[in-house]
Every structure is written in structure tokens, then in C-alpha cells.
């Protein structure tokens, strides 16, 4: 379980997060939704110690993220931020291979190579495996980065808008991979822009607005027309089509 207690965060004079107290349950897919600027990405960065914690406390399965040695944490928790550039010029295989670094510290063994091959297969990257990352499209690079995070094999996987740049088929395939991951007992926390993906694939939803948690609970409870309309300040209707719920917010 990820326990977040009394977390507040400022960037200069701007208050990004205030009084966040939240439990993200172990196992399943938890979606973070909310309007732009709600603080979803910042919260994720704080949980993954990418930003120093200014106030409050965050523990992952009892490990304090501020105190646990960063290399030990990397075997339990991985994060992929949105729009992270890649400074280095690498092949897709080498990039995915970096996901194993926390386990082998530079000396990959057979188990690491198997995990890399699995990740490449899981994300349809075989035809691209020997291409350099700077020759890929945005969506292909995004898949390679998610595959790297997958290969890290951590109990907790945090993804910040992983569907960016992905076409319909790959977005869906990615969400299905995340479900597979959750099915093996791992915990996936994902920031989603499109609430329909949350409706289709998430077990839990955390709705955030203005740096606070607005609602949290099982997906079916949080994703109601009234809640979403208030969350986004824009009319949203929920509808059942073919036994699945959809948020109608366009048109």
C-alpha cells in the first residue's frame, strides 16, 4: 500500500498540493484523474522521490520514500514520467535493458536477458529492437519507455500519462498490459487524461482538483456523471453501452 500523509508541495509561491492524505491500495490499477494543473503529476513525482518531499510523509509498503536508499527503492517502485526526453542515443533493446539496472547494477545475467526479451515481446517491439531511439516516432519511443519500466519488474509501477502519443490500438494494448501486470499482483498507478480508459480498465480512481483529493474509491463509485461534471467543471454524462460504462464528454 502507498500511504500518503499530510503532503503539501509548493513551487515558489504557487501551491501545487495541499493536505493530501491518501491510501493507494496494493494490487490492481489505480487511475489518477482530474483537470490540468490538479497536481496529479507532482503527486506521482513525490511518491517516486523524483522531487524532494517538502512536507508530510509517504511510505510504500512501509518504506519511507525519503529515507529508503534509492537503489533499494528502485527494486520496488518504478516511475515513467510524461514527455521525458532521452539524452542518450540507444537501441530499443539497450533502452529496455536499462530497466534491469536496479537488479544487476551493470552486470546483466541470464534472468535479466530473459526479462528484457519478455518486455520487448509484450510491447510488440521486436521489429524495432535494433533501431536507435532517435529514429522512432513519439508513440514508438513511448512504448519502448513503458517496456523499460515493465522490465524493471517492480511491485509498484507509476506511469504519468503513458497513453500520450499512442494510437488507439497501442493505447488499448498498453492498458491491457497494465491489467496483465495487475493480475500478477503488481500495483499500477497511472495518470489518465481520458476518463474512458479509467472507466474501462481501472479498479480504483483518485480524482484530484486544485491540489486536493476530490474523491477516491472504487472506479464505479467515483466515475459518476455528477462527480465528473463537478471535477472538470464541464457537463459529463455516464452511459452504459453494451454493458460497459462510458463518459460522454465530447460533442
Amino acid at each position: 500500500m502507498i500511504e500518503i500523509r499530510d503532503v503539501a508541495h509548493r513551487a515558489g509561491p504557487a501551491r501545487i498540493l495541499s493536505d493530501i492524505t491518501l491510501d493507494i491500495p496494493r494490487g490492481g490499477v489505480t487511475a489518477l484523474i482530474g483537470p490540468n494543473g490538479a497536481g496529479k503529476s507532482t503527486l506521482l513525482s513525490l511518491v517516486a522521490r523524483l522531487e524532494p518531499l517538502q512536507q508530510g510523509r509517504i511510505t510504500v509498503d512501509g518504506r519511507d520514500v525519503g529515507r529508503t536508499p534509492t537503489d533499494r527503492l528502485a527494486r520496488h517502485l518504478s516511475i515513467l514520467r510524461q514527455d521525458t526526453g532521452l539524452a542518450a542515443r540507444l537501441t530499443v533493446r539497450d533502452l529496455v535493458g536499462f530497466g534491469r539496472y536496479p537488479h544487476h547494477k551493470g552486470r546483466p545475467g541470464p534472468a535479466d536477458r530473459a526479462a528484457i526479451a519478455d518486455a520487448i515481446a509484450a510491447f510488440d517491439l521486436e521489429p524495432l529492437a535494433d533501431r536507435f531511439t532517435d529514429t522512432l516516432s513519439g508513440g514508438q519511443r513511448q512504448r519502448a519507455l513503458v517496456a523499460m519500466t515493465w522490465a524493471q519488474g517492480t511491485d509498484y509501477v507509476l506511469l504519468d500519462e503513458p497513453l500520450n502519443n499512442l494510437d488507439m490500438a497501442h493505447a488499448r494494448a498498453l492498458m491491457l498490459r497494465l491489467r496483465d501486470m495487475a493480475a500478477t499482483g503488481r500495483t499500477v498507478v497511472v495518470v489518465l487524461h481520458e476518463v474512458n480508459y479509467a472507466a474501462a480498465h481501472a479498479d480504483h480512481v483518485v480524482a484530484m482538483k486544485d491540489g486536493r483529493v476530490a474523491r477516491t474509491g472504487p472506479a464505479a463509485e467515483v466515475l459518476t456523471g455528477a462527480t465528473l461534471s463537478r471535477l472538470f467543471d464541464s457537463p459529463v454524462e455516464m452511459a452504459e453501452i453494451g454493458g460497459r460504462s462510458f463518459a460522454l464528454h465530447h460533442g
Binding site: A48, R49, T70, A74, L80, T84, A87, A88, G99
Partner: peptide, 14 residues
């Protein structure tokens, strides 16, 4: 480190 700061932190490099 060559991957950039965020990736390096996520992969457990101080």
C-alpha cells in the same frame, strides 16, 4: 545517468 535525471532516479542511481 546518460538517460537523464528522472530515469536515473527511477532506476535507483543516487
Amino acid at each position: 545517468m546518460a538517460l537523464g535525471r528522472d530515469h536515473a532516479v527511477s532506476l535507483g542511481v543516487d
